[in-house]
Design a binder for these strands. Structure first.
Length: 532
RNA sequence: GGCCGGUUCGUCUAUCGGUUAGGACAGCCCCCUUUCACGGGGCAAAGACGGGUUCGAUUCCCGUACCGGCUACCA
């Protein structure tokens, strides 16, 4: 399939979100596919804010979108934030532009003024509603029954306009034409114009609807490829016609309608509510609704690495035809192709998402993970991690902390799926466990074992070298002397040091936490056992 | 209801007419591991249905069923 129209045309794609709330999985994936396509073809990725609906505008949503893109590493080439030659990139700031084109369409007879009030429309829907037609359309049939410049006399229209009567501009859909286009993912798709209604192009407040704005801005911003969610497919004929009516057919972008991301259970589009209900994030980052103050968890805060997040999104509805599932962003850019995007929607599977994150943690080096792990510890209330996080230069203490942190990360990262797991898996390296799983020791605890551990901590206390394998030898010698099998003693020792039945090798742990902490923890648990 | 789109293991998917229909996640089993993981090995699991076209259909065409999207002065 050929999708570069003219050879010298630079690829330009756009992501055009409405600032109405948090950015969810589907939105970020649309960004990603746009970005991958643009970068693969050496093109530009533009972010345009579609804030034409003032009633749905939410404070902070735009900033949130840019924060999300930054976290994902999907940097726009042009946007209201990054600037660019086609500014402004916020539709609310482009208001006069749309009016001009709406006027052009009316003048050419492709659109008309409609003076119907919301009440009129409501009445129309009730009046013409039947069993066969539960949702009557403002279309070629019904427009003759409404108050618009098609039914009113020219004089009336002029007067209404002169009086400043609230009105909208609607597209005049042709009676019976076939509109077809080639979708990069779906191939040829066609519609009969009789089936689509006379969409509002310009609202009474002078703002364009999506339909007009997307066409005008895509043209003005020289967009070559327009990718969006499948939910837009039904209105594609309106957009195609608008490109024609405005005389821009030759510049119309190639379209691709992306498959939807579906609920894991049941059916339907994945929504924020599904995340709340099933206990996983749907938004990329935490989103706090400014009105309710309610915060919805994001993938970032849940402990996902941005690389993993991008990776799992890319593989939701696309693959390169091989068995490879783990890709860096660079690898995605080279491997990506719109033709390999699926037609059908994909049910989101959180288990698989977790696997991607685990995979990325495993593959990352401790140095790559260090800052984020330190942040995670700091966020969990552990003291002394802020400086490690920032890697403040100079101080030897900080350098030592960092070496320790890297060692700990190496030891535990294979056991971590989410960033928070570093805390549950590694906290005991930095602080004594607050709880000890003595219930797992108790049943088989004997005075003989008690004696063993008393001797063990004394031996540890007086040892000169503090190194894992020496500690293990000491441990084995004493257990032999007490006629105890090391196997029976390993678990108690582990619980004494880490608090539970998990973690890396006990002697490595002992080496890292040091003599004092090791001895203290053994004594502490011995005392607990004594009182039980 | 209408229009449009979709349909391979439970889930994400590979297959460009000829395969014992492959991989991954999840599940189960075994090995490794004096813990928990990682890792290694294995088991189980799929072409919605009915017609065509063809020597041969998961693959191409038609119909049916089912699922989804849209059907706002929201995007």
């Amino acid at each position: 399939m050929i999708y570069i129209c003219s050879m010298d045309k630079k690829v330009r794609v756009r992501f055009a979100p409405s600032p109405t709330g948090g950015l969810h999985l589907g939105g970020v994936r649309t960004v990603l596919f746009n970005y991958l396509f643009a970068k693969k073809h050496g093109g530009d990725f533009i972010v345009r804010i579609e804030d034409t609906d003032q009633t749905r505008f939410v404070e902070g949503a735009e900033a949130y979108i840019f924060n999300t893109l930054a976290w994902c590493g999907l940097t726009p080439d042009e946007s209201p934030l990054h600037g660019g030659p086609y500014a402004p990139y916020r539709q609310s700031e482009r208001k006069p532009i749309y009016k001009q084109y709406a006027q052009q369409l009316v003048d050419a007879g492709f659109a008309y003024y409609a003076f119907d009030t919301p009440e009129d429309l409501e009445q129309m829907r009730v009046q013409y509603k039947t069993a066969e037609n539960p949702s009557p359309q403002y279309n070629h049939a019904l427009r003759t029954k409404m108050r618009n410049s098609l039914t009113l006399s020219a004089a009336e229209v002029t007067e209404l306009l002169a009086d400043g009567t609230p009105h909208v501009v609607r597209i005049k859909m042709p009676l019976d034409e076939t509109v077809s286009f080639t979708d990069m993912i779906r191939g040829e798709v066609s519609f009969n114009t009789a089936q689509v209604d006379d969409k509002v192009l310009l609202k009474a407040d002078g703002m364009p609807t999506y339909h007009l704005a997307v066409v005008v801005d895509d043209y003005l911003m020289k967009i070559t490829h327009a990718f969006r969610g499948e939910e837009w497919l039904p209105s594609a004929p309106v957009h195609i016609l608008l490109w024609q009516y405005l005389g821009w057919s030759a510049d119309m972008p190639q379209w691709a309608h992306l498959p939807l991301i579906l609920k894991p259970d049941g059916n339907g589009k994945l929504s924020k509510r599904d995340g709340d209900r099933l206990g996983f994030p749907v938004f990329a980052m935490d989103w706090t609704d400014p009105k309710t103050g309610e915060t919805t968890i994001g993938f970032k805060e849940r402990g996902f690495l941005p690389q993993a997040f991008v990776n799992l999104l890319a593989l939701l509805g696309w693959n390169d035809g091989t068995d490879n599932e783990v890709f860096t962003i660079e690898e995605l850019i080279t491997a990506f192709s719109m033709e390999r995007v699926h037609k059908g929607g994909a049910k989101f599977n959180y288990e698989k998402a977790l696997w991607y994150n685990q995979e990325w943690i495993k593959r990352a080096t401790s140095a790559q993970l260090a800052d984020q792990v330190a942040e995670t510890f700091a966020a969990a209330g552990f003291a002394g991690f802020d400086s490690a996080a920032n890697g403040v230069a100079g101080s030897n203490a900080v350098a030592a902390d960092r070496v320790l942190l890297l060692r700990v990360i190496d030891l535990i990262k294979d056991r971590c799926t989410l960033m928070a797991d570093f805390v549950t898996q590694g906290a005991f390296f930095f602080v004594s466990p607050s709880e000890f799983d003595t219930a797992s020791i108790q049943p088989k605890w004997t005075e003989q074992k008690n004696m063993f551990f008393i001797e063990l901590f004394k031996a540890f206390e007086s040892s000169i070298v503090w190194e894992a394998h020496d500690l293990e030898n000491t441990f084995k010698e004493i257990s032999a002397a007490h006629h105890l099998k090391p196997g029976e003693l390993m678990l108690p020792l582990r619980i004494m040091l880490v608090g539970g039945k998990f973690g890396p090798g006990v002697f490595e742990i002992a080496e890292i936490i040091g003599k004092q902490a090791t001895v203290n923890r053994i004594q502490k648990v011995l005392r607990i056992l004594e009182h039980q």
